[in-house]
């Protein structure tokens, strides 16, 4: 009885009596969820255009952020370093296409998925070799990202909004908007969608698969860079981020593998759900629930709707 009370009543009483805490938790969940969504966006981009489930997206985030910091540490001005990092991400996209994807064309999905594991391990080793394994601070000031926080008085308490989080939200929205326009309006965007529908049909109307793949991997690299900067600004840049990036997977399940809005909505649901769960129900089981909460939500969700919120219905034929 006591347990039931603690599960079903107490948290809501808490929410009611301290609404400012609730708003704060919601806000933090949303910001965290947005960052998951950004990583998930990278997954979706590549999955849409090549059917490859890119496990390396998480490490690409770390790699991009580390490259930026590492270049800046060499005395290169911040924005030049940013441009150089973009160039590095392009080089990465090109070499992935040339070395990994091209020889593996027409292999089953699972083989390509495994190949991205290989990329992940290679990048972990390479990144640690070049930049060292210790956590680094993101160069926020040099990139003119705001610092500090706004304390807003509301609901009988204070809600504190980190300026960097607000900036991250704005930048993420801009990026999603740009990507949506890119996918639906431009020539390359249409080619991308054609490739996603059918490789063979796309090839037959003269779309170059190789070029398209370099472009999507590059786009995913750019998304990774933005994610890396934003995440690095909130905490440090370290290889632990790679494990956190796995949280993008439940986001994908919720949103569906092929939907950009799905990635965003899924990210927000997971972020908010995980923060609320940890803050109000976590102490009941000893805390630290955010390591698995997202996955369990996704697992339950999968039981009822395997194709995700916005995914296309899976129809199987023999």
């Amino acid at each position: 009885m006591d347990l039931l009370y603690k599960i079903f009543l107490e948290p809501f009483v808490q929410m009611g009596t301290a609404p400012d805490l609730l708003v704060q938790t919601l806000w933090e969940g949303m910001v965290g969820g947005m960052l998951y969504a950004l990583i998930a966006l990278g997954f979706v981009l590549i999955f849409k255009a090549s059917g490859v489930f890119n496990f390396a997206q998480g490490i690409m985030v770390v790699f991009a952020a580390l490259t930026l910091i590492g270049l800046h540490a060499q005395g290169i001005p911040a924005f030049v370093a940013l441009a150089l990092t973009i160039a590095v991400m392009f080089a990465l996209a090109w070499s992935v296409e040339r070395i990994v994807l091209r020889p593996l064309v027409n292999q089953p999905d699972i083989i390509l998925f495994m190949a991205t594991f290989g990329i992940t391990y290679f990048l972990i080793g390479f990144g640690e070799l070049v930049f060292g394994g210790d956590p680094k601070t993101m160069i926020t000031e040099e990139l003119f990202l705001p610092k500090g926080s706004w304390d807003i008085k509301m609901l009988g308490g204070f809600v504190s909004l980190q300026k960097i989080d607000v900036a991250a939200a704005i930048i993420a929205s801009i990026m999603v908007a740009v990507l949506s326009v890119f996918f639906s309006k431009t020539r390359i965007g249409r080619a991308l969608r054609a490739v996603a529908d059918s490789h063979k049909a796309a090839l037959s109307v003269g779309i170059s698969l190789e070029q398209i793949w370099v472009i999507v991997w590059f786009a995913a690299g750019l998304v990774a860079l933005v994610t890396g900067i934003m995440w690095g600004a909130r905490s440090n840049v370290s290889f632990a981020l790679e494990i956190i990036a796995l949280k993008a997977l439940p986001v994908l399940i919720l949103g569906g593998f092929t939907s950009i809005p799905g990635a965003i909505v899924g990210g927000l649901i997971i972020g908010v759900g995980e923060k609320l769960g940890e803050f109000y129900w976590g102490p009941l089981v000893g805390g630290g629930t955010d390591s698995w909460f997202a996955f369990v939500i996704a697992l339950i969700f999968l039981m009822f709707r395997p194709q995700g919120l916005f995914g296309e219905k899976i129809i199987e034929r023999v």
Partner: peptide, 21 residues
Amino acid sequence: AATVEHITFMIVGALIIFFLI
């Protein structure tokens, strides 16, 4: 020792890709 570990990671990654290809 740390370098070896990093190189091991790189080699394992490269090997995975190599064998898959």
